[in-house]
Simulated assay, not measured.
Amino acid sequence: MSIVRVREHVNPLSKKYQVPATPPDWSTIYAKPHQPLHVDIGCGKGHFVQDMATLQGDRNFLGLEIREPLVDQANRWRDELGLSNLHYLFCNANNSIRPLLTSLPTGILQQVTIQFPDPWFKRRHQKRRVVQPELVVDLAEFLVPGGIVFVQSDVEEVAIEMRDRFDEYPAFIRQHDDWLPDNPMSISTERERSTLSTSDEPIYRALFVYAKVS
């Protein structure tokens, strides 16, 4: 597999990324478009959802990534593997998640993962972080009751912010009082494996179940 080199960080607030993504025709994207859906926000090179899609043929997977060359590369790899339950989209999740989820078949969004997002350490840059209150509201609108959101980061400040923003929304019920000791997914990301193998620093994880408020 050839490797595409891209910038490590992309400013989602720049003009280039302010136009929401146009939803595709999902019936041409997935062989079975009404299967349960897992969305990975900020999927990077896409290996995590590629591995998940390989293991779980009864579920569809959608990777969202703001760096377009990585999306093009990931879709080429998907085609080489012949995976009809996997797709990658180039978009800014903060302004595209609502139109994308609105266009999907009703009642299929069951899992969302947000893993090791760009930390944007400087205070003036923190509005660039992916987990903004509006994103939480959008996910709450489309997740099925019992659906899950899993977030993790090796940067404690970022993990706390993500955790707190989901905690603030009453319908998201955190499944552990402290940080999760282990990854509840069947697959680890490249970043997670690298961090665990080269550092003694912890990974901060939180799992939420969506309980629809009547």
Rank of each mutant, 00 (worst) to 15 (best):
160 I>E: 13
54 T>A: 11
15 K>I: 15
162 M>Q: 08
65 E>T: 09
60 N>C: 10
189 T>P: 00
15 K>Y: 08
31 A>D: 03
33 P>R: 06
163 R>G: 02
146 G>Q: 08
193 R>L: 13
50 Q>A: 13
199 S>L: 10
173 I>K: 15
73 Q>S: 11
29 I>D: 06
137 V>F: 04
56 Q>H: 14
148 I>L: 12
127 K>F: 06
192 E>M: 14
9 H>V: 14
186 S>C: 11
75 N>G: 10
15 K>L: 09
209 V>A: 13
135 L>Y: 02
64 L>P: 00
199 S>Y: 15
35 Q>M: 13
65 E>D: 04
189 T>C: 14
126 Q>M: 04
22 T>G: 08
100 L>K: 02
118 D>M: 01
132 Q>M: 05
130 V>K: 00
186 S>L: 12
40 D>H: 00
115 Q>T: 10
36 P>I: 12
1 M>D: 14
185 M>Q: 05
19 V>H: 12
170 P>G: 07
106 T>D: 12
49 V>R: 00
115 Q>M: 11
177 D>N: 12
100 L>R: 03
41 I>R: 03
20 P>G: 07
129 R>Y: 04
119 P>R: 01
214 S>G: 15
78 R>A: 00
192 E>G: 07
150 F>Q: 02
213 V>H: 11
56 Q>Y: 15
17 Y>S: 10
185 M>A: 13
24 P>F: 11
142 F>L: 08
49 V>M: 08
39 V>L: 08
148 I>P: 06
81 L>K: 15
87 H>G: 06
157 E>Y: 05
85 N>M: 04
82 G>L: 05
34 H>I: 07
60 N>M: 07
102 T>S: 05
113 T>H: 02
99 P>N: 05
